[in-house]
């Protein structure tokens, strides 16, 4: 059973970080709504896909989707694509896993190695790396497809 309302609410919440981080990167003002929509869209899509497949595969599909949308938007408004795509994938970045990986590493160095801590370290680290890789691969696929052609995207 898919909880549509929950997914929708979470997607709205995910739009906020997308806008915030887009502002750190100093994107042009007119693109902010697109960044918000992109962030909400990607996060919502991933939440939806989590019902059917693993988190890595879901992230990959969501990143590919925003990569393709970014190509259309950038053509229409003459903007470099990263403005849209990177702001949109910010909510999916595995910051939490990376943080927990680091914390368990610090605990290991402070209290000595235990099986439990080591397992936590490896598990979180693998999650972080594989999600990051899935995002990057998803973003790069559409642009690799389009750079095959002679005509540049913009």
């Amino acid at each position: 059973m898919i909880d549509w309302w929950q997914i929708f609410a979470n997607a709205l919440w995910a739009g906020l970080p997308a806008v915030g981080f887009a502002m750190i990167f100093n994107v042009p003002r007119s693109t902010l709504p697109f960044c918000a929509f992109g962030g909400a869209f990607t996060y919502g899509l991933r939440e939806l896909l989590l019902n059917f497949c693993s988190i890595e595969l879901g992230t990959f599909i969501a990143a590919t989707a925003i990569g393709i949308i970014g190509v259309f938007w950038s053509r229409r408004y003459i903007m470099p694509r990263p403005i849209y795509t990177i702001a949109s994938i910010i909510p999916m970045i595995p910051g939490k896993y990376a943080y927990e990986m680091m914390i368990s590493l610090v605990t290991i160095s402070a209290n000595g190695v235990t099986d439990e801590l080591l397992a936590k370290f490896i598990e979180n680290g693998l999650y972080a790396v594989s999600i990051l890789f899935a995002i990057a691969l998803g973003l790069v696929l559409p642009s690799l497809h389009y750079t095959k052609r002679k005509q540049p995207i913009l």
Binding site: P82, I86, Y99, F133, I135, A136, S143, L144
Partner: peptide
Amino acid sequence: GIVLSSSVLLLVPGFPYINAILDAFK
């Protein structure tokens, strides 16, 4: 614990990481 981890998320260097992988792929 979650408060601690999410308050430092503003420092995650997502842009350089993604740029690095995009560059390497191309």
